[in-house]
Design a binder for these strands. Structure first.
Length: 125
DNA sequence: CTGATGACGGTGC
DNA sequence: GGCACCGCCATCA
C-alpha cells in the first residue's frame, strides 16, 4: 500500500504554495482547505518553516487582512514589504482589503488531483 | 508517558 | 469599535 504519509502541516503548506502572486489567503482558509481542525494549525505550520523556504508564507494573513505579529517584530515588516512588492496594497490602517486581494481558493481540478475535499468547517456544535 | 507551546478565529460583553 | 475567554491539536522537551 503506497502509504505515503503526509502530515496535515505538509498539506497546508501545499495549499499555501498555490496562492497566486498578488493575492493573499487567511489562516482559516488554508486550514479549512487542507482539512485541519483549527485555523491555528495553519499558523503552527508556517511557524516551522525554514528561513530559506520557497513556500510563499508572506501571502497568508489573518482574518482581518492583517499581518499576525510573532516573536520577531522585523518579520512583520519583512512580510509587509514582500507583499507590497507583489502589488498587494495596504490600507491606512495597515490592513489588506480581502475583497480585493483575497484568494478564492484552488481550482476544483487541483483540489481533486490532490485529494482535497472541501467540507463544512467541523460542525461547530 | 506528561506538559508546554504556538504565524488564529469566533463569540460574548 | 475593543477586550477577554475558549476551542483547537500537531510537535517537541
Amino acid at each position: 500500500m503506497g502509504g505515503e504519509v503526509v502530515s496535515i502541516y505538509e498539506k497546508m503548506l501545499l495549499v499555501v504554495r498555490e496562492i497566486p502572486l498578488g493575492r493573499v489567503a487567511t489562516y482559516g482558509q488554508i486550514a479549512w482547505i487542507a482539512g485541519a481542525a483549527s485555523p491555528r494549525m495553519a499558523g503552527y505550520a508556517l511557524g516551522g518553516l525554514a528561513a530559506d523556504t520557497d513556500v510563499p508564507w508572506q501571502r497568508v494573513v489573518n482574518g482581518r487582512g492583517g499581518i499576525s505579529p510573532r516573536g520577531d517584530p522585523l518579520a512583520t515588516d519583512r512580510q509587509r514589504k514582500l507583499l507590497a512588492e507583489e502589488g498587494v496594497r495596504f490600507g491606512a490602517d495597515g490592513r489588506i482589503d480581502l475583497d480585493q486581494f483575497g484568494w478564492g481558493g484552488p481550482d476544483p481540478e487541483w483540489l481533486e488531483a490532490h485529494g482535497f475535499v472541501l467540507l463544512p468547517w467541523r460542525a461547530r456544535g
